[in-house]
Design a protein around this nucleic acid. Sequence first.
DNA 1: GCCAGTTATTTGAAGCCTAAAGAATATCGC
DNA 2: GCGATATTCTTTAGGCTTCAAATAACTGGC
Lengths: 163, 163
Amino acid sequence: MLDSETKAVELPEDHAEELRLWLRLLTCTTLIEGEVRGRLRQRFDVTLPRFDLMAQLDKAPDGMTLSDVSKRMMVSNGNVTGLVERLVESGHLDRRTSDTDRRVQVIRLTKLGRAEFRRMAAEHETWIADLFADLTPKDVRELMRLLAKTKASAQKSAGRRRA
Amino acid sequence: MLDSETKAVELPEDHAEELRLWLRLLTCTTLIEGEVRGRLRQRFDVTLPRFDLMAQLDKAPDGMTLSDVSKRMMVSNGNVTGLVERLVESGHLDRRTSDTDRRVQVIRLTKLGRAEFRRMAAEHETWIADLFADLTPKDVRELMRLLAKTKASAQKSAGRRRA
DNA sequence: GCCAGTTATTTGAAGCCTAAAGAATATCGC
DNA sequence: GCGATATTCTTTAGGCTTCAAATAACTGGC
């Protein structure tokens, strides 16, 4: 006979629920992201990654290093390099080498960049509100809680893998 | 004096909670997606879009048209064209023109494609289970419910925009 | 049968993104 | 100060992705 521990190893566990949850999470995000992307393009002729980068910088008046940005946005370093290049080119960002560490590039929003971002952000916020309009305040609170738990769980799992 | 209706229009509403929710949703998805992407690459040297496409086809033994795939995966038509091209090239997909409509391309998994997908999918499922491991069954159910509601809300909003 | 409109797919240009390798600079231990 | 190691950023190669325009094929009304 099998004891319960052996059973747990040998019987294939059923993870179908988690899989469905993941697919649903992905669908929601893709749906909303696509909508936001399209509206940003239509209304402001700006891409979502550019908007996201400006959003990070708007919260950091003293600027950020490229590494900071890369970590915050959860994208690769090389990605940030190109993104910043284009935004400097278009006059939205200012970029300078750090005084204390010549490896480091510090970027900030220019006056133009900040003004344009604020204008876009105001409208963006109404889009998000509209996209989530059918959720009650309680739904929102509950989702926040469960997503925080999900994030923690995923981070733990990701950490286990690299450890 | 302002009546309540005028107030509602004139006072800028506070959508900060919804915005935070959206950012958290995005963070969760990005985190998990990045993890899955990395593991697929490491273990099977396959990209996430390829895996996703094969997953769609695995559920459709009779094949799918490119448009079907494009709708299901929520990506553009042009995207699917290239993705399919590479997977046909590598022998994972079979592609033929429909008998009844010469515009339509029907794609299927090849024997090789199906075998490789099944092998990857089995492991993939355990990754997902691990990433969501700290959620209780109740958490999972509740998230499913709230995300379904979110999806419906977002679809409604997206529809309003296009209407 | 033919024309107008629609649908399925491809193409092209631009941008986004990653992983991995490389260059420049900083830091630590000695 | 020197060398080993680490960090910051860029570069490269390849793939993904979108949008918009183009091509090809179907459909319905006449």
